[in-house]
């Protein structure tokens, strides 16, 4: 009983860290541009497929492949911001951004399904199926490595945000776009790079997701609704909130799935969202959180 409990918590924390990475990208984009990127889910799947292609056809290790896939996804993110999002008018921007990224998502979903077919894939490597033995628990290596990767990348993200000149510009743009522009910050450039970073994390998130779960193009719908739930609970725009909510939600899901049933675990995921919002419309960690328009 107690062992099951601890195991579920460990599972939740390890997989939650990967969700934290993917959700951080999503909430970062919202924080700076007030854009909700519905395509984040399919971009994660695209990241997984890129790793799949590199490992199966070129024999490149999953983690080494990130050196290629992260820049590719970064460029794609900059492209989406430059080609589509920056051309949206200011009126009804959030709703329009949802529709535009939704359109991008279904185009990518159609294309991936066309290329790779509907059969489920899973990434493989020596560490995917092996486990390490720690204090009586068997931990699959991929979960541990994924956790470490997420911690490193989230650390890097924090470093960029709080210790660099660019991070300062980004946070300025997040607080007040107009004021940031007035003091000479190139807000368009900051937006493009932010979108790039927000999408780049999906390369890493997608690789770990693809190694721990079997996926096809349709997996993106479930993924994006989870990520959206997480960033709302965390208070939209708050990276710390997104990380906290990811770990919390995944731990809850693991506990429900251990002690009740895996079929209901996903439902509990969304039920928590509804209950929390009924009590506290700003999300769990939100202060300014669910911003007024």
């Amino acid at each position: 009983m107690v062992t099951d409990f601890i195991r579920a918590v460990i599972d939740g924390v390890l997989s939650g860290s990967v969700y934290a990475l993917m959700a951080a990208g999503l909430t970062l984009i919202f924080g700076v541009m007030e854009v909700i990127n519905i395509a984040q889910g399919i971009l994660v799947i695209l990241g997984a497929y890129l790793s799949y292609v590199l490992s199966v056809h070129l024999g490149i290790d999953l983690f080494a492949g990130l050196i290629i896939t992260i820049p590719v996804m970064f460029i794609l993110g900059v492209g989406i911001q430059w080609g589509l999002m920056s051309r949206l008018g200011e009126r009804e921007k959030v709703s329009m951004s949802i529709l535009v990224t939704y359109a991008v998502a279904i185009i990518l979903e159609g294309a991936l399904d066309l290329i790779f077919g509907p059969s489920y894939q899973q990434l493989s490597a020596w560490y995917v199926n092996k486990s390490m033995h720690v204090l009586g628990f068997y931990l699959p290596y991929i979960y541990v490595f994924g956790f470490l990767l997420a911690v490193v990348l989230l650390g890097a993200l924090y470093f960029i945000l709080y210790r660099t000149e660019f991070g300062r510009s980004l946070r300025a743009a997040q607080q007040n776009r107009t004021a940031a522009r007035l003091i000479g910050i190139d807000v368009n450039r900051v937006s493009a790079i932010t979108f790039g970073i927000g999408v780049a994390v999906t390369a890493a998130g997608g690789m770990v997701f693809g190694a721990t779960t079997s996926f096809n193009a349709n997996s993106s719908a479930d993924l994006i609704s989870r990520l959206l739930t997480i960033i709302i609970l965390g208070g939209m725009g708050s990276i710390g909130g997104a990380m906290g909510a990811s770990v919390l939600m995944l731990v809850i899901e693991a506990l429900v799935s251990t002690f009740w049933s895996p079929t209901w675990a996903t439902l509990v995921f969304y039920a928590v969202l509804v209950v929390v919002l009924a009590i506290r419309p700003t999300g769990l960690f939100g202060q300014k959180a669910v911003r007024a328009q």
Binding site: S95, A221, I224, A271, V274, L277, A278, V290
Partner: peptide, 28 residues
């Protein structure tokens, strides 16, 4: 009653969440 308590963009996201709750109910 739940979804309309929030602002517009959160509303969009909640309707997506509610949609998946109902689909899951349909399956389960």
């Amino acid at each position: 009653a739940v979804a309309l308590r929030t602002k517009r963009h959160t509303f969009v996201v909640i309707t997506i969440g509610v949609f998946f709750i109902f689909q899951l109910l349909g399956y389960n």
